[in-house]
Amino acid sequence: MTRHIKSPGWNVLGLLPTHLIMFLTLIIPVGIIVLVSFSTRGPYGGFEYVFTTAPYKQILFNEGWAGELEFNPQYLIVVARTLLLSAGTTLICLVLSFPVAHFISLQKPSLKVALIYLVTLPFWVSMIVRVYSWIIILGNEGVIEKTLRALGLIDDMDSLLFGDTAMLIGLVYSYIPLMILPIFASIEKLDPALIEASHDLYGSRLITLHRVILPLCQPGMLAGAILVFVPCLGAVLEPTLLGGGKSMMMGNLIQLQFGAARNWPLGAAISIVLMTAVLIFLVARGLRAVRRETTELAL
């Protein structure tokens, strides 16, 4: 009789390191951060295990001298900005990606591979360098300002850097490959006969696009939307380098609480809000689907 290649003992042994590492370096730390978000801020930074809901209240309110709570939207604005910028980035990526993915899918196989490689490549080029490149372009005396001046269009202009627009530009640039790939995959799966059928029935290109292609590409677009939206929620580099100190997103707000601001419990509470937001979107999409999509992406 042929022995099985792996016995149950081997199964446990093979999976043990992964489970152990993830448990010790992810599950336990995330558990601790939940604990810290309900802890009291230490006198010199850090935290003490004294139960309080103050960090969560702090997201919404300022505490006055006598302990009275005064509504302060400063952190709520950061949360709203994070959601809006992430949604905006996702939308822009969707609009830009579809024509490109569609065009690539019509090329001959060798060119298709080359173009997909070109789409993927920037994603592996250092993230920090890609974000930095926009400082040279948008900044004071930057490429855009110099070009416009050389064309005689402007005399002087406000720096485009530091603000929501600069962040939006940086976010779209950072994450757009994650949108093109799943849309491309779904266009590739499209049966050309359906498009021909639509035309045979006197559907114009526009009607075919609207009634046949776009509906059939919806799964790919949805996958891309999640793949862009979720990392945007946790973006740190784009808001730090392109947003400046005033225009913050949740990612660099959290970082700030663990750095200069030294308010770990508040940072932990904002982390929990961020993680909850991400998990809501992942669960809504279905973990299984997300897993499958991230897998397809790596191929």
Binding site: L26, P29, I32, P231, G234, V236, Q255, L274
Partner: peptide, 11 residues
């Protein structure tokens, strides 16, 4: 599946 900044802070 988890935001990197949250995991980093937790670590």
């Amino acid at each position: 599946l988890l935001p990197e900044i949250v995991v980093a802070v937790a670590t």
